[in-house]
Amino acid sequence: MLEARLPQAKLLKSLLEAIKELVVECNFDCNDSGIAVQAMDSSHVALVALLLRADGFDPYRCDRNLPLGINLTSLNKILKCAGNEDILTIKASDDGDVLNLVFESKDSDRISEYELKLMDIDSEHLGIPDTQYDAVVSMSSGEFQRICRDLSQISDSIVIDVTKEGIKFSASGEVGNGSVTLKQSGSVDREDEATTIELQQAVSLTFSLKYFQYFTKATPLSSRVVLSMSNDVPILVEYKLDNLGYVRYYLAPKIGD
């Protein structure tokens, strides 16, 4: 059986916001080390990998591998019934076909209980190779969100060029073109806004902006985002969750023949 408690329902609500536009239904794979999700979008261009480590919950109990097949639209409906500050407990039995969700107000004077019907989902699990990326850029997640929003005014595609000087995002479309360059920050007072670049080799990649805009739904989860890139392979866009795990998105590049 599974029993996992989070001090704030807001976290699960935000996680759902971060994936529900990419994925309609997926398995939440629970085991004694935590809860993991791996799912592709319907066009098989992007992949989401989510990890919530057991030690981020208090308490956490799961004594065997338990795949919980969840329709995210349905889960979203139930999570709308939770207050952001409610204590959230999820429970599932080994042979059950429902997920129990309990929302408890902080002073425990209101307890609401919901059951979400589970489904059998036959999902293929992809092997993600361990990659040494040529460029790893850590930057403000809010800045990344703004750049994606701004450049989507210009084009459906975005070109990312990373050199040791900085990272340049550019777009070119019918109205004209535009670009935003972030220089690697030297000594900055505000760590959250710094841009840092680890570069083995310059990279230049083209991506669909639509997917980046889905990924930036994770912005409330972390003040930082890490973009890991090598030429001609999928970009890894990672939001780390404090003391809990991560949301990772992989997006296949656009490549000419």
């Binding site: 261009v45 992809l126 092997g127 669909s208 392979v233 999928p234 992989y250 296949a252 590049p253 656009k254």
Partner: peptide, 12 residues
């Protein structure tokens, strides 16, 4: 723009 690749052509 160049054609969009599938993620499954990179991850098996």
């Amino acid at each position: 723009p160049p054609p969009q690749r599938s993620i499954t052509s990179f991850f098996k």
